[in-house]
């Protein structure tokens, strides 16, 4: 298609999409302004959920199956990047100022702090906004920032540990589900007495896996960085 045809198509598309937006907007307009959805159910069952944060209860108890599959989706992204890109440090690292002492000093202070914040968010998820994904994202950002400051922390990681870190969240999740099933409960039906601790355990392992997955995706699919590539830039 030549560029003028493209421009006409683009305008027509814009008009069409505006119509769709208008229709969906109208549909939203017709919604009543009060609607409780499932919030009453969710809050009524909270005492059996093993957590006092309703969002965490939905994520890791009522609809834990979604979260389990979501972990699989994340692992898929890593596997795909692993296969397609095959590791190697991102170009971003190569252009960063690896010799900047201020940046390095700042990162050295920030990293322990980030790890602390991440752990705090994980714990907070039990009763306030927070949880595994937020914690994992902060942890991963700490790992990424280290790379951007030119600190290669993962090249010495053993190959087996890399794989264990990536999969441990999903292992813990399915493992808990299957073990509960073998004890005569249904899949991921936590016993009320231990629900809180099982959820916390799953969240810790998932948080680690999420962080590992996000860093791996940044590094082109491998958590273990390839030093050779990094040296080229420094």
């Amino acid at each position: 298609m030549d560029s003028s045809g493209w421009a006409v198509g683009s305008r027509l598309g814009a008009v069409l999409i505006a119509v769709i937006v208008g229709l969906v907007g109208y549909a939203v307009w017709t919604f009543p302004s009060e609607f409780s959805g499932l919030s009453d159910h969710a809050i009524a069952e909270l005492q059996h959920a093993g957590t006092s944060n309703p969002v965490t209860a939905v994520l890791l108890n009522y609809r834990s199956y979604d979260t389990l599959l979501e972990m699989a989706v994340l692992l898929l992204a890593v596997l795909a990047a692993w296969a397609l890109v095959g590791g190697g440090v991102n170009e971003v690292c190569l252009v960063s100022e690896v010799s900047n002492p201020v940046l390095r000093g700042f990162v050295r202070v920030m990293t322990p702090l980030s790890i602390l914040v991440s752990a705090h968010l994980l714990w907070l998820g039990d009763h306030a906004p927070g949880g595994a994904f937020q914690a994992g994202a902060i942890l991963a950002s700490a790992g990424v920032v280290l790379f951007m400051a030119g600190i290669d922390w993962s090249h010495k990681l053993p190959a087996w540990l890399e794989r264990v870190l990536l999969t441990i969240g999903l292992f813990a999740f399915t493992g808990v589900g299957i073990v509960l099933m073998l004890t005569g409960r249904s899949f991921l039906e936590y016993p009320p007495a231990t629900a809180k601790w099982l959820i916390l355990m799953i969240e810790v392992f998932c948080g680690v896996s999420i962080a590992a997955a996000l860093v791996s995706v940044f590094l082109g699919g491998r958590l273990r960085s390839r030093q050779t590539v990094l040296k080229k830039g420094s």
Partner: peptide, 12 residues
């Protein structure tokens, strides 16, 4: 839109 004021946790 939950009348109780606390947003519905399921969509969140």
């Amino acid at each position: 839109r939950a009348p109780s004021g606390t947003p519905d946790p399921v969509p969140q």
